Each structure stands twice: as structure tokens, then as C-alpha cells.
Amino acid sequence: MIKRTLYFGNPAYLSLKNAQLVVKLPEVEKNDSLPEHFKKQSERTIPVEDIGVIVLDNKQITITHGLLESLLENNCAVITCDRKSLPVGLLLPLYGNTTQNERFRNQLDVSVPLKKQLWQQTIQYKIRNQAAVLGGMRQVVVKNMLVWANEVKSGDSNNIEARAAAYYWRNLFVEIPEFTRDREGCPPNNLLNYGYAILRAVVARALVTSGLLPTLGIHHHNRYNAYCLADDIMEPYRPYVDELVVKIVDTGIACKELTTELKAQLLKIPVIDVMIDGQRSPLMIAVGQTTASLYKCFTGELRKILYPEKV
């Protein structure tokens, strides 16, 4: 079942009652001029088991410990945002699988050659998906990217990823001459940053559900990064975020400020349709298939990660 992504951008009081998330609005609760029946009708309830991701984007949001406990027990990812409304924190359950200890050990025992092979596969899928977005959205030559994907070696020792990225970003936003892909760069970098943060949370949640440690990557190993594995596994999924951002930009809408309307469109990322294993699936479900296949690679049951392919 596809889980819901909830966004809270206004002051709210979030609590738990009968396994339901209860949403109350302080402005309504404290307004004595409103009738009681209206106040009660303003309350919303949502089954906790239906929630996959929650985004908290207001300093005046209050959330009870009981609700947090229930959300984590149901493998929900809780994202908190900073004053610029950009995701700054991610809360995940400590235990997402019944065989957690065994799975951690299998992950810790993975050999370096296997990690390099898995990274090779990851980059190949990423470049192919980038080529599909670039060819589909900008109708530019992508045969070179497909050739590069086939040239990726174990561990991407020849750094084909960087070569493909340079060509990709140079041609994706040609109508914005000053654009370079940089976290602090000009728009639509702000949209990309927000979209990737949502994607990262979805991937991290799926890794925990599969009983894996999001910290221990197959390639990324920054000592200050708590989500190295999530950053690895999300790579082939990034082009789906890029494609959504391109569609938004092409409408001509102003992107300098990350408005509520823009966030609403980016929060659709978990339900984007992708093709994986020959079937259409919402991105959130596909990510779960990817992380499950990754664990099987760690145990030796598989030699290939299951990633989506853009067509």
C-alpha cells in the first residue's frame, strides 16, 4: 500500500488518539468568536499506519511524544525544516525489521569488491536515467551518455559519473544561462534541493524498513554524514526529481521563492510512477523493492540491485 506524505506549513497541534493522528489548529481553537461545533469540525484525523513521510515546516507546530512514538513504530520518516523552509532534520525508527541484528551483520561483512560492483551498477542506472530525462525533455543527443554508462568500471574508478553530470546539467536548463548545479546556486537549485531531501527521506525510510543501516554506504563515506547509504541508493532516482523540476520550470512559474504551491508539487515525489522490474509502481514502493534487493545482494542471494529504468 502506498503511504501518504503529509506537509504542515502552518501552526498546528499534532497528537495521537486511537491510533489516529489528530490535527488541531491553534488559530481556530483560541478563537472564542467561533462556535464549538465549527471548532470540532476543524479537527482532522488520519490513520498513523497510512503515513509514510511527515514534513514539519513551521516553528509553531507542537507534536506529542505519543504521536512521535506511534509514527516511528509504523516506520514513518519525520522531516523538520529550518527557517528557510528547507529540510534540516530527519527522524527514523531505530528498529525497522524483525531480524535487525542479522541484517546489520550481513551489511557490515560486505566485501569491498561487492561494494564496488554495486556502485558500478548504481552509476550505470543513474546515467541511463539521466539520458532518458535529457533526451525526453530537451531532445538533445544522449548517445554519448549511453556509451559512458556502458564504460563505467567497478567502483566507477574512471569517474564517468562526473563526466555525465557535466554534460547533463549543461543541457538540462539551457534557458537559464547562469545555472550550474550547486546547493547554494541560483534557482531552480532550491527546488532540486527540496526534492532531493524528500527523496532522501523516502530512501532512508526504506533502508530502515529493510533492516539496513543508512549510515554505512557502499560508496559515500563522509564521516559527518549519517545517511551515506541513502545517498548512494537514491542516485538512480534523482533523475525523476530532475524531470519534475524541469516540468515546473517549463511552466514559467517563478521559482526564486520556495512557495507552498511549489512544495506541494515536489511533495508528489513519493507517488511518481516509475518502471521497475517490468512493472509500473509508485516511487515509494519501488524504493522498497530496491532496498530489499540490496539486502539480498549483501547476503549473496542476488548480484544485482533492482533499480527503476526510465523509458
Rank of each mutant, 00 (worst) to 15 (best):
W119D: 04
L25N: 14
E309G: 14
P239F: 06
P282W: 03
R105A: 08
C76P: 03
L229Q: 12
Y13W: 13
A201C: 00
G96W: 09
V141M: 09
T260N: 15
R223W: 13
V147A: 12
Q124H: 01
A264Y: 08
D156V: 08
V48D: 10
Y194L: 03
L91A: 09
E49H: 08
I276P: 03
I123R: 04
V55L: 15
T98Q: 14
H219G: 02
H220Q: 09
G136F: 01
N222V: 04
A131E: 00
A164P: 06
Q265K: 14
A164W: 06
S42A: 14
L6G: 06
A204M: 10
C255N: 15
D232N: 06
G155Y: 07
Q107T: 03
A197R: 08
K116C: 09
E49A: 11
I2G: 07
T251F: 04
T5N: 11
L207G: 01
V202L: 09
C81M: 01
S210K: 09
S281F: 03
Y167E: 04
N171E: 02
M234D: 05
P282I: 06
T98I: 11
Y196D: 07
D57W: 08
L306C: 12
K116D: 14
P87Q: 02
D250Y: 06
A286Q: 07
S42F: 10
K296F: 01
Y295H: 13
R223D: 13
S293W: 02
E151F: 00
P282H: 08
L216C: 09
V246H: 04
N74I: 00
P282V: 08
L86Q: 12
I46V: 13
N158F: 10
K268S: 12
E29P: 02
L244K: 11
P239E: 06
N101W: 11
Y224N: 14
T80M: 08
N193L: 02
I123M: 03
Y224S: 15
S33L: 13
V245D: 02
A132Q: 12
F104S: 05
V110R: 12
V246L: 08
K263R: 15
T62K: 15
R181D: 06
T80S: 14
T180F: 02
G300L: 11
R4G: 03
T215M: 12
W148Q: 07
K24A: 13
V241R: 07
I305G: 04
L90P: 00
R44K: 15
P187W: 09
D273A: 15
L213R: 09
P113M: 01
E36I: 13
E235G: 12
